[in-house]
Design a protein around this nucleic acid. Structure first.
Length: 512
RNA sequence: CGGGGCGUGGCUCAGCCUGGUAGAGCGCUGCGUUCGGGACGCAGAGGUCGUAGGUUCAAAUCCUAUCGCCCCGACCA
């Protein structure tokens, strides 16, 4: 956009830099401006602040209800896992050993030079769980004797630790929070059914609560969960067009049950190994929420997950006006709270802090509250409020009664609008590619030094045959197969790289 | 763990090259005027310059080590 030299400066954005200017830095700034979280004194770990935590709590309660509705129960298993447990499943060890925190002592004592030093070495080191397949499997082995003991359908909400080289707030932290479901079944078919069911739950959650469109698919061998037979995933496109793995559901076959001897007698009296699954979704979803919807003025929270749906901003100049405006706001707040959205009362905050109106307003913009309603003497006179939508920036005066009546629909509209917008972005930056030059061009930034936002999802035929040249190209472009989609057309074709027959197109992209 | 960048009041940063009593803007506190999209004036508070050594009469500044953060790579939810 051109600006006349004498005209005012381009509109100021609350977040600087903008997404275009520096996406990773924008992401950090949104978190700071919305007061979601902060880096902590502990390397790689963050403090989740009340506003960020409230969003996570809403995610938890929605997911938890969905787990219960599909027959699961919550339980809790230890944070510490004996090191020997991890050793039982070969691929699992290989996948996680490098990133385990290890507890080797159980006591501190004064050190000779002052301070403290570890004392009391443990006979067997404990690892801090990076995931709980092994400890839970060990318990399942005790619990299962008969086919009548199956299935076991348990979920746990927990923290886990993975000692990553590089961390990013919410997306990859050393300690993170998640839920991990672990189930054991008598038959392969039933375990597979469970694996797919939970993928559907995740997709449902992502699309209907986060308003984040996802592609459901299967991971390739290289991207699979260590020890799994198959990993199903939901993949979402962030605004920088990179893919984010947003939830995974693993069919573990009998790999873990064999390693941990989860055995039972079937109806014929024969001993069998159980079939297990595991599935997880983490605080990474908060990062997904940020990168899917937020704009250059900060966070935008989809109403289904918003800790507050509406903030009322009373406007007054003196005590006289205050005495009129505040009671008006209080009764409006009470009326709004009697409305419900998403099966729960509409959440309303009356922000009567002693701050300037403009400043207050911006705080709520940056924090992503879906609706802001200014209420001042002028509105009182007309029995209306001045309503602003965070998603579109649209502002309008609306009659009080109408506002109260329409709040649920308005929130639903915002929820839908956010989903549509995100889906549009995904569609605009997805395309079938059948030629190698185009593939290369699609994923190559114009400025390699400071890559601009580029690329997206390339739907290509692919034969999954080992080929050094292909691996090299993908590595160079930093592109991976995000998933082999489960839905949609599956027209066969020829692999883009090798010319081998291919059953269907897979999704390529750069990823987080 | 490799490459690059950065650590100076709460935040963003200047000062470092060329050593000599620690600065700005924003924020914060108080008072006043303001208040419908980020107010203004006046008066204040606040920093042993990431940490530890070293060089020097003297170190934010020079040297060494170390820790942390950010970006890129390898690895991953």
């Amino acid at each position: 956009m051109d600006h006349h030299p004498l005209m005012s400066k381009p509109p100021r954005t609350a977040i600087s830099p903008t997404r275009e200017e520096d996406y990773p830095e924008w992401y950090q700034q949104v978190i700071k401006a919305a007061d979601l979280a902060e880096i902590s004194p502990v390397r790689g770990c963050m403090v989740i602040k009340p506003w960020g935590w409230a969003i996570w709590e809403n995610m938890q309660s929605a997911l938890d209800a969905m787990f219960k509705a599909t027959g699961h129960e919550n339980a809790y298993f230890p944070l510490f896992i004996p090191m020997s447990y991890l050793e039982k499943e070969a691929e699992h060890v290989e996948g996680f050993a490098k990133e385990c925190a290890v507890v080797t002592h159980h006591r501190l004592e004064p050190a000779p030079g002052g301070g403290l030093q570890p004392a009391g070495p443990l006979e067997e080191p404990l690892i801090v769980r990076p995931t709980s397949e092994t400890i839970i499997g060990a318990m399942y082995a005790r619990w299962v004797q008969s086919y009548r003991d199956l299935p076991i359908l348990i979920n746990q909400w927990a923290n886990v630790v993975r000692w990553e080289m590089r961390t990013r707030m919410f997306l990859r932290t050393t300690e993170f929070l998640w839920q991990e479901g672990h189930t054991a079944h008598a038959t392969e078919a039933e375990a597979w059914e469970e694996t797919r069911r939970m993928l559907e739950v995740y997709a449902d959650f992502a699309e209907n609560h986060l308003a984040m469109p996802v592609i459901k698919g299967e991971k390739t061998a290289g991207e699979r969960f260590p020890g799994a037979v198959s990993t199903l995933t939901i993949e979402a496109m962030m605004q920088d067009r990179k893919a984010l793995q947003a939830g995974t559901s693993h069919f573990l076959g009998q790999n873990f049950s064999r390693a941990q001897e989860i055995k039972f007698q079937d109806q014929n009296g024969r001993e069998q190994f159980a079939w297990t699954t595991s599935w997880g979704m983490s605080t990474r979803m908060v990062g997904a929420l940020i990168m899917t919807h937020s704009d250059d003025d900060g966070l935008i929270i989809p109403p289904r997950l918003a800790p507050r749906h509406v903030v009322l901003l009373p406007i007054y100049r003196n005590d006289d006006e205050r005495a009129q405006v505040l009671p008006y706001c209080e009764s409006l707040q009470a009326e709004l709270r009697r409305q419900s959205y998403g099966g729960k009362p509409v959440q309303v905050l009356l922000d009567d802090r002693d701050l300037r109106g403009g400043e207050k307003n911006w705080q709520h913009i940056k924090r992503g509250v879906p609706l802001r309603a200014e209420v001042g003497p002028k509105d009182l006179a007309k029995d209306s409020v001045f309503l602003a939508r965070r998603d579109t920036g649209q502002k309008q005066a609306i009659g009080r009664a109408q506002f109260v009546a329409e709040v649920p629909q308005l929130l639903a509209q915002i929820q839908q609008g956010l989903f549509d917008r995100a889906l549009q972005l995904q569609r605009d930056h997805s395309r079938p590619i059948d030629n190698l030059d185009e593939f290369r061009e699609f994923f190559t930034p114009r400025d390699a030094e400071k890559p601009e936002i580029h690329g997206g999802f390339a739907w290509c035929h692919w034969s999954d045959t080992a080929d050094a040249a292909t691996d090299e190209l993908l590595k160079q472009l930093k592109v991976t197969v995000r998933c082999i989609p489960l839905d949609g057309d599956s027209e066969p074709g020829r692999c883009l790289f090798t010319g081998q027959p291919s059953a269907r197109r897979v999704v390529f992209g750069k990823s987080y």
